[in-house]
Amino acid sequence: MAQDYTRGNLVGTVTDQAGAPVVGAEVTIRSNEQGFTRTTTTDSSGQFRATALPTGTYAVTVTANGAVVVQDNAA
């Protein structure tokens, strides 16, 4: 089976300051090069997964209860 090095996955866990999982947080992933956006929601363990993303850099924003709690603008 050939490997695909043109796509990857972004996975993570969103926790609060006490280390508890943040359930239902919205994770927005924006491609810096191509401009498209993917949005996913954290599960009951605070985990999220975005699959088959083209290689490149991404800006990630996490919103919980209507407030931006994390924003990472990777370059």
Rank of each mutant, 00 (worst) to 15 (best):
A18M: 09
T40Q: 02
T57S: 13
E33S: 14
T39P: 02
T41E: 13
G46N: 04
V22G: 06
Q17A: 13
T28E: 15
V27K: 06
D72S: 08
N73P: 00
L53D: 10
E33N: 02
V70I: 10
R7G: 11
A67L: 01
E33G: 08
A50M: 11
D72T: 10
D16G: 11
Y58P: 12
G8C: 09
Y5Q: 01
T63G: 00
A52I: 04
T13E: 08
M1S: 13
Q17L: 13
Y58K: 11
R49Y: 00
D4C: 02
V11Q: 03
Q71R: 14
P54F: 14
M1L: 08
T51N: 12
Q71A: 13
V14Q: 01
G46L: 08
A2N: 07
T39R: 15
V11M: 06
M1E: 06
N73I: 01
R7H: 15
A64N: 09
Q3K: 09
L53M: 14
R49M: 01
L53W: 11
V27P: 12
E26W: 04
D4E: 08
N73M: 05
V60P: 05
V70T: 05
F48R: 03
G56F: 03
L10P: 00
N9Q: 08
E33Q: 14
T41G: 04
Q3A: 07
T61G: 09
D4F: 01
V11W: 04
T13V: 11
A52G: 09
T61H: 05
R38C: 01
Q34H: 15
D72N: 13
T41H: 11
R30G: 01
G24V: 12
G66D: 06
T15L: 07
M1N: 11
N65A: 12
G24P: 13
A75V: 08
V27R: 08
R38L: 14
G24N: 14
F48G: 00
T37K: 14
T6C: 03
V62Y: 06
R38K: 13
D43R: 05
A18Q: 14
T61P: 12
T15Q: 06
T41K: 13
D4P: 02
T15Y: 00
T28A: 15
R49L: 01
G8V: 10
A64F: 06
M1T: 10
V68A: 13
